[in-house]
Nucleic acid binder design. Structure first.
Lengths: 150, 150
DNA sequence: AAGTTTTAAGAGTATTTTATCTTAATTTAA
DNA sequence: TTAAATTAAGATAAAATACTCTTAAAACTT
């Protein structure tokens, strides 16, 4: 799998938040139910995004989480980097530590290009863009399609 | 990680075999030592490649494994598909089962392109090509660089 | 101030991946 | 025909990932 489950859940909930921009804090419980993600697991994932500075949280009634900046300024890359780290974008396809221009493996050049393709796609896509597309075309971000864009 | 450890080891040993084309069966013990991979683990990985038809094995003294066809006809994609499966090349970036043209997620189009980039790179690269490059430019396929192309 | 709602944090469990160990089966060679 | 070399296969162990549960801390409401 390219991205960990935690990362995928992080992306889905980030899209959720981007589609609720201006609605203040959204409770994790609500998101976990609408996105069909284990509440406690999602809590931990969002804690990572919060400590990475991408979200801010608030305790108590009317608490929850929200994006710290506009979703149009948050790229998918930022979410992925905060949860799965950037190893995917620097690592060697053959798993050799320190593989790079100076000390490459036979696959380095080709893989570096491919890897950059993934990175550029993620960097060039922001949350609001996807949320708008999802809403406009009524696309799903949950398995059962139970999620409704608002 | 893009590829599992097993897959990476499978690729490294496939490159080894491609650089030994025509030398008959190569013992797994020898490969495990030269590539610094756990012998038993490598054995299981090569069993997968054997049952996938990419390699053939022979027991007893002078036994080992060898490629069933010329390494120039074996793409990296075939090795990856035999060990990690093709899920990576069909799966949804948001982890939604059945995501595709008919029932896409908001990221589907962009990810499908990126995914194809990975696939094309792997399909367009064969074992001998890499082994030759590795030998010519003296590139490493082990962590410590202890491996020597012959 | 008390009770309720909510996130935070840590411990615990389950599953998958990675790796090891042991025994069996096969093949060669003396 | 016996011994040694080698892959095959199954059981076990360790580590990483994916979740779950419990308790604590904070903030709002009355």
């Amino acid at each position: 799998m390219l991205l960990s489950k935690a990362c995928v859940y992080g992306l889905r909930s980030s899209l959720f938040l981007a589609s609720h921009e201006g609605d203040g804090y959204i409770s994790i419980r609500e998101m976990s139910e609408k996105l069909d993600i284990s509440f406690h697991f999602l809590t931990k994932i969002l804690q990572q995004l919060t400590s990475a500075g991408l979200m801010e949280s608030h305790k108590g009634p009317k608490g929850g989480v929200r994006l710290t900046k506009s979703g149009s300024e948050v790229s998918l890359f930022e979410i992925v980097a905060a949860i799965d780290g950037t190893e995917l974008f620097t690592e060697c396809a053959l798993g050799l530590p320190g593989c790079g221009v100076k000390k490459p493996c036979p696959l380095h050049d080709k893989w570096a290009d491919t890897r950059d393709g993934i990175r550029l796609m993620l960097e060039g896509t922001n949350l609001v863009e996807l949320a708008k597309k999802g809403k406009k075309e009524n696309l799903r971000i949950t398995e059962d399609g139970g999620f409704e864009w608002i």
